[in-house]
């Protein structure tokens, strides 16, 4: 008798789960399709803001960035992707400070781990979601992130 009940119990439970499965798939069937027709829809393409496409250094309207050339990102990077070139100058108070000359970033070796962004104490660098990076030459992947003539924001 126990086996008998078990048989019917398992039968109806199985039937129920099958119907749940059918319900789920028919919902997906009528759902809007997620496929992106990429080259055609470039104008309307929406990439998530959190997508890590390339490392950038945001500049404000005065062509100023936040990088103080401390080199923590370079230390944090597991691949040697980042090289911070700086020169040491003396400011008006007579203190020697580092000034960024060339923030070198090699897109070709970057693994987009975000350790450099996490290491930065001044939020000078961040990832943005642009992803069309194809070039014909590996050397073109080595980029200079700070713009020409940019200076560091003078924090009071």
């Amino acid at each position: 008798m126990n086996n008998f009940c078990k048989y019917f119990d398992s039968f109806f439970r199985g039937l129920k789960t099958l119907l749940v499965g059918l319900k789920t798939t028919i919902k997906v069937f009528f759902r809007k399709k997620i496929t992106e027709k990429y080259p055609e829809n470039r104008a309307t393409l929406k990439i998530s803001d959190r997508f890590r496409g390339t490392l950038t250094m945001p500049h404000d309207e005065n062509n100023q960035h936040n990088c103080v050339a401390c080199g923590l990102c370079q230390i944090a990077c597991p691949n040697g992707t980042i090289t911070v070139h700086f020169e040491t100058v003396e400011n008006e108070e007579g203190k020697k400070i580092k000034v960024l000359t060339n923030y070198e970033y090699d897109l070709g070796t970057c693994v987009f781990c975000q350790l450099c962004v996490n290491a930065c104490p001044h939020n000078a660098i961040t990832f943005e979601n642009s992803f069309e990076h194809a070039v014909f030459n590996r050397q073109k992947l080595v980029k200079k992130l700070n713009r020409d003539g940019s200076t560091v924001v003078n924090k009071k």
């Binding site: 997906v28 399709k33 997620i34 496929t35 027709k37």
Partner: peptide, 13 residues
Amino acid sequence: KICAWFQCRIGPD
């Protein structure tokens, strides 16, 4: 086509 729609794709186009 139907397989694609059940998997939330478009299928051959």
